[in-house]
Simulated assay, not measured.
Amino acid sequence: MAQVTVRVGGYSHPVSCEDGQEAHLVALAAELDRRVASIRAMGGQYGESRLLLLAGLLLADELHDMRVDLSAARGGAPLPAAEASSASDPRLAERIARLAERIEGIAATLDRP
């Protein structure tokens, strides 16, 4: 298991990942950091946990829109949110669960004094 330190929202976070996935994880963190920066640019005072929550929701919304677009491009009618969920793809559900665990771990370290 590899260890990578990523920077999101001006804070460094050590994160474990599978060997060989370090560059991918750094790219994912950079995307999350871009979302956090865009939320900060809107104004308002948010704690780190709130920023990560809002950035995660932006990414989840974009993922949902992409699924709907993909379904339409494949010739199917746009899927309702319930049908477009990860439940239809067990591998995707597992990846989302792992990502959620990572996010919760990062958020937990941010909540510590």
Results as ranks from 00 to 15, higher is better:
68 V>W: 00
76 G>V: 01
109 T>A: 12
43 G>A: 03
23 A>G: 05
94 E>Q: 14
83 E>F: 00
5 T>K: 09
97 A>R: 15
6 V>I: 09
40 R>I: 03
113 P>L: 01
14 P>I: 04
3 Q>L: 15
72 A>N: 03
52 L>N: 01
97 A>T: 14
44 G>N: 04
10 G>R: 04
57 L>K: 10
75 G>Y: 03
46 Y>I: 03
64 H>I: 05
13 H>F: 12
47 G>I: 05
20 G>E: 02
48 E>F: 06
46 Y>W: 13
4 V>N: 02
41 A>H: 10
16 S>D: 12
111 D>Y: 09
79 L>A: 10
80 P>A: 05
17 C>H: 11
90 P>H: 10
19 D>I: 11
26 V>K: 12
20 G>Y: 05
58 L>R: 14
81 A>Y: 12
82 A>I: 04
108 A>I: 03
53 L>K: 07
21 Q>N: 07
108 A>K: 13
10 G>A: 00
98 R>D: 09
90 P>G: 13
33 D>V: 02
49 S>M: 09
51 L>D: 00
81 A>M: 10
96 I>P: 02
39 I>R: 05
64 H>D: 09
92 L>E: 12
98 R>P: 05
11 Y>K: 10
40 R>M: 03
92 L>P: 02
73 A>N: 06
57 L>R: 11
13 H>N: 04
97 A>W: 09
75 G>N: 00
85 S>V: 01
25 L>W: 00
44 G>L: 05
82 A>S: 10
103 I>M: 12
92 L>S: 14
27 A>D: 13
40 R>S: 07
63 L>S: 11
57 L>P: 09
73 A>G: 05
61 D>R: 13
84 A>F: 01
84 A>K: 06
103 I>Q: 02
69 D>S: 08
46 Y>N: 15
49 S>D: 10
70 L>T: 09
4 V>R: 01
92 L>N: 13
5 T>Q: 03
48 E>C: 04
81 A>K: 13
110 L>N: 12
38 S>R: 11
91 R>A: 12
37 A>N: 11
105 G>Q: 02
40 R>Q: 10
42 M>H: 11
45 Q>I: 12
24 H>S: 09
101 E>W: 14
1 M>F: 04
6 V>T: 06
78 P>H: 05
43 G>T: 04
56 G>D: 00
2 A>H: 14
74 R>M: 08
26 V>L: 09
36 V>R: 00
40 R>C: 01
92 L>G: 09
107 A>M: 08
